[in-house]
Design a protein around this nucleic acid. Structure first.
Lengths: 191, 191, 191, 191
DNA sequence: GATGAATGAGCGTTCATTCAT
DNA sequence: CATGAATGAACGCTCATTCAT
């Protein structure tokens, strides 16, 4: 097994455990066991439990961003971009429920305090399609005039809550409902 | 100090600590210290840590419901009721930021699992103004036709996220902005 | 309620609880509750938990001695005295199983360490019929020649164990079986 | 230090402490300290305090049984077997006083409730020499006719009490006295 | 590098005892 | 006198982290 594999194994085991059992039900020993490595080995790849968790979050987030960027309709109308992102989020998280659960855990823990500002949309510096969308919509007066934070809340919050309810099995979020939600969000931000 | 005072002190200390430090940074010993009582005394008023936390949540929730019900425009148009609730939530939580933080912590913990379905709006049995509003709006075709879960997500999620951002000091949520958010939520649910 | 009554109530409640729940399952608060008094009141009558327990033991023991002394066949043959004591013990403890259980608890606890020497037969100073019996039997060569400790062990141990088994419901110790046990003990000590 | 050593150290420390201080004067922290290990280490070898205690008991019991079985005069007359067991018990416990004390503590605690029936002589399944002896003696009419429980009480109780008194330093139980006690027990059971 | 045994601070909880009322 | 609310030391147990092998 290569060094990279071991790192991946640990991350995968940790994410599974942390998302399923919560941050409390997943001691390092259990993670190690599930990853098929010794406890000590985790510390060779990650300085501490905190670092492990933060790293997982970061990698996850990058994966999400990559997913959204793939086929992103650069240059197309604001509305199209909005829908691409909205439905993309739903698709991504429903396809990766563990990612979603982990993310929820992360944001409601000491680890997430610092990152709170960028709930889903971290200013990764690179390719901030969210901000670009906001600015374009505002300058073209397609959107109601409001600070970006509120715009993003209107755009993302209902989607995220709905995804959560779906993942927890409380409702069924099918394609057409997802589209309805995203469309409703669009209604809320459009001027 | 009266018996009632001590109970209040414990609740207050616990809420402060739990909301500020998270559920992990607030051991019973610290709560006791902050409340100015012995550890054992907490157990005179609350059977266990769980019960303490659940009690705080329940009392808080009742306070919120009472706040929203006071001056509730029963019988007035759907839109007016919608705005009463929306702005009421903003007002209440901005006026009681600790309540908000505690609530967030609560819902993202094993304790909140059961309550999850009714994020803010527990079906307290009495006066479920949320459901009444939803039903009225749907039957009058004022709202888009969708299951209640999604309706509530559209109605509440952006408000809650915005309140959170305000409380965390990331943005300033003044009266007019609050009204804009609520109005945007209205746009998202209205047919 | 008189002062004496309250003391009796506490003793009775404590004995019941201690014998039934063991020395661990009977906190002072529970004893107080069962006795129908405040916790603090117990400390007016007994210096500490230890003192309470030791007092109960002492009173119990006195009751047993009184029972054995009543109708004691002073001056009658050694064998008759032996049987009086042996069957008396059985009768007393089977009639007062709580006393027996308490006694067992007592002897196997830090409290009982000091008293161990005088398992059942404390040298109460007054009327030591046990020792008198031993001395008489030895001097008349009715008993095997051995130190008193061993004599008493032969005389009492099988009886006590059998009573215990009866009280725990493992065997039925009826009159005739009791007599058989006592007779067997007699066989063991007689020369 | 090998893994086995540490386990032994813990068992030894626990047995010493538990037998000398009783089950209450021996918290895990003290056991750990005496064993020269960290508290947590105990839990690597024993699931819980209960398991630790039960394990010690079991190992001890096995040692005793092994001791009695070694040189057991299988097929020899009932009386010889009786004496082998009786004097064997004395020899074993006097040689291992801590084992005796621990056993006493164990049987008079919640742990020992279940085992109570078989005070010293647990039906270990294998080689139940006690029961075999009883049955043989009864069928050959060597013993008084009585249920096994009472037979064992007559056989063992005086021995155990005498060993206890010896270990507590109240009497000196030498070879000839031990033989006298066992012989007396024999007198009590023989028909 | 990899391991997992060892550690001990820290947790939630209990309960004998005190003392203000 | 009687009360029971208040106390806090002490308990069994967990788990992130270290380090000898």
């Amino acid at each position: 097994m290569t060094k990279q594999n071991k790192r991946e194994d640990i991350i995968h085991a940790a994410m599974t455990l942390l998302s399923e059992q919560g941050f409390h039900g997943a001691p390092m020993s259990t993670i190690a066991e599930k990853a098929g490595v010794g406890v000590g080995s985790i510390y060779r790849y990650f300085e501490s439990r905190d670092v492990l968790i933060k790293t997982i979050y970061k990698e996850e987030e990058e994966e999400l961003v990559a997913f959204l960027l793939e086929k992103y309709p650069y240059g197309h109308p604001v509305k199209e971009c909005f829908f691409h992102i909205g439905t993309g989020l739903v698709d991504y998280f429903i396809g990766n429920p563990m990612d979603f659960k982990f993310s929820e855990q992360f944001h409601n823990s000491p680890y997430g305090e610092a990152n709170r500002r960028d709930r889903i949309f971290a200013s990764t510096g690179r390719a901030d399609i969210f901000m670009e969308l906001y600015k374009r919509g505002i300058s073209m007066r397609v959107f109601k005039n409001m600070p970006p934070t509120f715009f993003f809340n209107l755009m993302f919050a209902p989607i995220m809550w709905s995804v959560r309810d779906h993942i927890l099995g409380m409702v069924q979020l099918d394609k057409s409902l997802a589209r309805l939600i995203v469309a409703s969000c669009w209604d809320s931000v459009k001027s």
